[in-house]
């Protein structure tokens, strides 16, 4: 299969063209936009009931759709729900990728997805307690609110705001810390930051969901 990521970074959308009959792509529920009529769609709870339950808690959708080509040249279009970018990382089996749970869009069936509890760190880091650990080989598609900015983290490390993490490669680990002392922690508007150490790639979103949510809050209808 081959793919073309279009409309980046404003509205990432993937046009996937299958080369062989039987080729498959696993897509997050409701992310399909269009397809050739002959591309088959089946819906499943990936990882069984236990896996589905974990995904429900982590904010992913319980169901995923598997699309299968019936003849060469058929196309499939998919896009995330939020206004923003989409990136494709080709997994080669040498490292895993950790994704914020709401950022997953699609992957080849040969990529294994496992929802991981990120503990207290996850609670404060805006990744909603859960990270998806991706292993195996094949293309992995993920999206963001805003554009995706990649940072190659070297020996010096890198600091980022907790609300802007999309994902990172397995060679990295992070710690929560405050910046600017006590006053900085409460008044800087930054609160906790994440300090990444190790060697690998970090993907940041240039906008956070919290920003648009608090802007829209006063425009919501009120009860009664």
């Amino acid at each position: 299969m081959k793919w073309d990521l279009r409309q980046r970074p404003d509205f990432g959308i993937c046009q996937l063209t299958f080369d062989q009959p039987g080729e498959q792509m696993v897509v997050e529920a409701s992310a399909m936009v269009a397809r050739d009529s002959n591309v088959d769609m089946t819906t499943n709870m990936k990882g069984g009931l236990g896996g589905a339950l974990k995904r429900k808690i982590s904010g992913e959708s319980v169901f995923q759709n598997t699309f299968t080509a019936s003849s060469p040249g058929e196309t499939l279009w998919f896009a995330p729900g939020a206004d923003g970018d989409m990136e494709c990382h080709i997994m080669d089996g040498s490292h895993s990728v950790m994704l914020a749970s709401s950022c997953f869009v699609a992957a080849a069936p040969s990529v294994e997805l496992d929802t991981k509890f990120a503990g207290v760190k996850g609670f404060f880091s805006g990744t909603k307690l859960f990270l998806i650990k991706c292993d195996g080989q094949g293309p992995l598609f993920f999206g963001s609110y805003g554009a995706i900015h990649a940072v190659d983290v070297g020996p010096a490390g890198y600091i980022c705001d907790t609300q802007h993490i999309v994902g990172f490669t397995g060679g990295l680990d992070y710690q929560l810390r405050g910046v600017g002392g006590l006053k900085g922690f409460f008044a800087s508007g930054e609160g906790f930051v994440c300090e990444f150490k190790g060697q690998g790639r970090l993907w940041l979103a240039t906008r956070s969901a919290g920003g648009i949510a608090s802007f829209l809050q006063p425009f919501r209808p009120t009860k009664n």
């Binding site: 980022c160 705001d161 006053k183 800087s188």
Partner: peptide, 17 residues
């Protein structure tokens, strides 16, 4: 910078509020 505007930075940046 406006409070809350920072997305990321190199670790040698010192922030004062």
């Amino acid at each position: 910078a406006e409070a809350g505007a920072m997305i990321g930075m190199s670790p040698n940046m010192n922030m004062e509020t």
